[in-house]
Simulated scan of single mutants.
Amino acid sequence: MKELTCNQTLAITSHRVIANDLNEHETVYGGRLLEMLDGTASISVSRLCRSLSVTAAIDNLNFIAPFKLQDSFCIESYVTGVGKRSIEVFVKIIGEHIETGERFLGLTAFLTFVVTKKEVELPAIMPVTAEQKDLCSTYPDRQKQRQLNRIKQAQLIKNINLNLPWD
């Protein structure tokens, strides 16, 4: 079976915070960050599978520090786990205060993508750095937790009322 390193799936996008990105707290709107991190993570997935995929889940999303006007940030993503048709991607957003050059961790998340073609054979992923080795070694634990969450989600969905309150 083919193998790729996490570095071969690395995708990095850089952004400067502008006024249109801000919410009422004068920090970057969380939904805007989600849109951008999903797009960057999808590049990592494409570098692994070279096939169409869809975002299935965003797990362990942590907003750690806000991004403000006069900041820039880099979104870094790489594959940390591979299943039969699922691919886990770790994403971190590193901010930088433009005026001082101080860097900070603003967000971390894991995204799960599913390859749409059933006949695709996914390569194994090999970590290189200490960070990658740590994250890849804990992939089976996150995978088990996602399976449990899917069971709970199915039970939850059964009890959700789709009627409007005035129906």
Rank of each mutant, 00 (worst) to 15 (best):
E3S: 12
E3I: 12
E3G: 00
L4R: 10
T5Q: 00
N7Q: 12
T9N: 04
L10P: 00
A11G: 05
I12G: 02
S14E: 09
S14T: 13
H15Y: 10
R16A: 12
R16N: 05
R16D: 04
I18F: 11
N20P: 02
N20F: 09
L22Q: 04
L22Y: 09
N23L: 08
H25G: 03
H25W: 12
H25S: 08
E26S: 10
T27F: 02
Y29F: 14
R32W: 07
R32C: 01
R32Q: 05
L34I: 13
L34N: 06
E35R: 08
E35A: 08
M36S: 06
M36G: 00
L37R: 01
G39D: 07
G39W: 02
T40M: 03
S42L: 04
I43E: 02
L48Y: 04
C49W: 05
R50V: 04
S51D: 07
L52T: 12
L52S: 10
L52V: 11
S53G: 10
V54G: 07
T55C: 09
T55G: 12
A56P: 01
A57T: 15
A57W: 10
I58M: 11
D59A: 13
N60L: 14
N60P: 02
N62R: 14
F63N: 03
F63L: 11
I64E: 05
P66Q: 13
F67W: 06
K68D: 04
L69Q: 09
Q70T: 15
D71K: 00
S72I: 14
I75L: 02
I75Q: 00
E76K: 14
Y78C: 00
V79S: 01
K84E: 11
S86G: 02
I87L: 04
I87Y: 00
E88M: 04
E88F: 01
F90I: 03
K92Y: 09
I93Y: 03
G95P: 03
H97M: 13
H97P: 00
I98Q: 04
E99R: 11
T100Q: 07
G101F: 15
G101N: 13
G101A: 15
R103M: 13
R103H: 07
F104G: 11
F104D: 06
F104S: 11
G106N: 09
G106I: 01
F110E: 04
L111V: 06
T112Y: 07
T112K: 07
F113R: 09
T116M: 09
T116C: 11
T116S: 08
K118G: 11
V120T: 13
V120S: 06
V120F: 06
V120L: 06
E121L: 10
E121P: 00
P123K: 15
I125G: 00
I125Q: 01
I125Y: 00
M126D: 05
V128Q: 06
V128H: 03
E131S: 12
Q132K: 08
D134Y: 15
L135Q: 14
L135N: 09
C136G: 09
